[in-house]
Nucleic acid binder design. Structure first.
Lengths: 138, 138
DNA sequence: CTCCGTGCAAAAAATTTGCAACTCA
DNA sequence: TGAGTTGCAAATTTTTTGCACGGAG
């Protein structure tokens, strides 16, 4: 039994071919920091010879999001992108010089964010933070 | 000569009625933290008796963004929202319950962000931070 | 065998574009 | 006047939904 199959079982979703394949694509690209859109995944699957519908990709991604195994981002214009949720949280720092993306994590900020929400009667569910930076002396 | 008229002059854009009206709507709502979508602004204008096209609202907002007088956000699902850029910087907190957007500013985090960049040899140019929160049950 | 899930096509929703008419400087 | 701008309609793009068939348990 594959990894994906197990993971799907845990969510209560039936281990169907489209779901397994979509999860595979997301897992394979997760180390490359490649946030993929529904369309991207769809094309990837077609190229791999799988016969899936784009609507299914959308539906499955929505189900995965509800199940808490993928995260949907609205970073980009015009379309959402998805990434598998891993255990290590990180934020992003983007170099304006060359577009390189660095990951970082800061407990002080994480803590303060929770406090800010709580001070206003909310609980922090999640956050997104991106720092746009430029190399000093260049 | 109106405020909006002056502001438009500075950008090099012709001070046309649709542009002035759109800027007015954005200015009027900026204190209410009401980040509006193109559709919102369009409906607001129609309600006020102005005869504008939705396409024009989109076009004008894009021009305003290029001119640096409004900022476009993608924190909601499905559509972008806009706000006039003012001198006081703030970040956003989005309620997952009803989509309300709150603004806040935290010097501690601002300071830490600069340090994080500097520790890695960068200078912080700008940043985006959005907290997604949920009302605490009681 | 029974549902849950799928593909397809069509619908919605969000945004962009082509173009003739219009208007501000 | 005349380049820049607009409104309208049609085109695109992104995502969702209805429905009959098909596959997993």
């Amino acid at each position: 039994m594959s990894n994906q199959n197990k993971e799907l079982k845990k969510t209560g979703l039936k281990a169907t071919l489209p779901r397994i394949r979509i999860l595979e694509v997301l897992e394979l690209t997760k180390n490359e920091e490649a946030h993929m859109s529904a369309e991207d995944i769809y094309k990837e699957l077609l190229a791999a010879g799988d016969d899936v519908g784009l609507a299914t990709v959308y539906r499955v991604l929505t189900q995965f999001e509800s199940a808490g195994i993928v995260k949907k981002h609205n970073f980009e214009e015009g379309h959402a992108v998805y990434e598998v949720i891993s255990d290590d949280h990180h934020d992003h720092m983007v170099s304006l010089d060359d577009g390189t993306i660095y990951e970082f994590n800061d407990d002080l900020i994480e803590q303060r964010q929770k406090e800010i929400a709580q001070e206003r009667g909310f609980e922090l569910v999640e956050h997104s933070m991106v720092l746009y930076v430029r190399k000093i002396n260049s």
